[in-house]
């Protein structure tokens, strides 16, 4: 086994252990843990048997296995960024709505209270 393969396997094992600890602490769901474990298991398998990725690259018509990995990785990253962007936008919108509603209600109630005490606005 090469040094590169050893590093990949140890790093993957580290990521899975970390995910397991988070899952036990209920910081992440079981489904996310399983997804994460599957992902790193796939990385380990490809590291041990690189021929798999080369065959897959041949099958889909991409020249080299490493090219296929790069294309898939870019696709996944762009998709994650897109999803995150949507999520951040929604959170921002909800936050703005909450802050604005609170500001309007508080000021309105204050005015209503002062009107009750005959103070001119």
């Amino acid at each position: 086994m090469s040094l590169f393969q050893t590093i990949i396997i140890l790093a993957s094992l580290g990521f899975v252990i970390r995910a397991l600890v988070r899952c036990v602490k209920k910081q992440i769901s079981l489904w996310l843990f399983l997804l994460w474990t599957t992902l790193w298991a796939g990385v380990v398998i490809v590291a041990i048997y690189p021929v798999i990725i080369n065959r897959l690259a041949d099958f889909v018509g991409v020249g080299r296995g490493v090219d296929l990995i790069i294309y898939v990785a870019i696709g996944v990253i762009v998709y994650i960024l897109f999803k995150q962007q949507i999520r951040v936008g929604k959170v921002e919108k909800d936050l703005a709505q909450m802050v604005q509603t609170k500001a309007v209600d508080e000021a309105f109630n204050l005015v209503a209270k002062e009107k009750g005490s005959d103070k001119e606005i």
Partner: peptide, 9 residues
């Protein structure tokens, strides 16, 4: 009348 945002929007 003063209305206040909790955070800068």
């Amino acid at each position: 009348i003063v209305a206040r945002h909790m955070v800068n929007l």
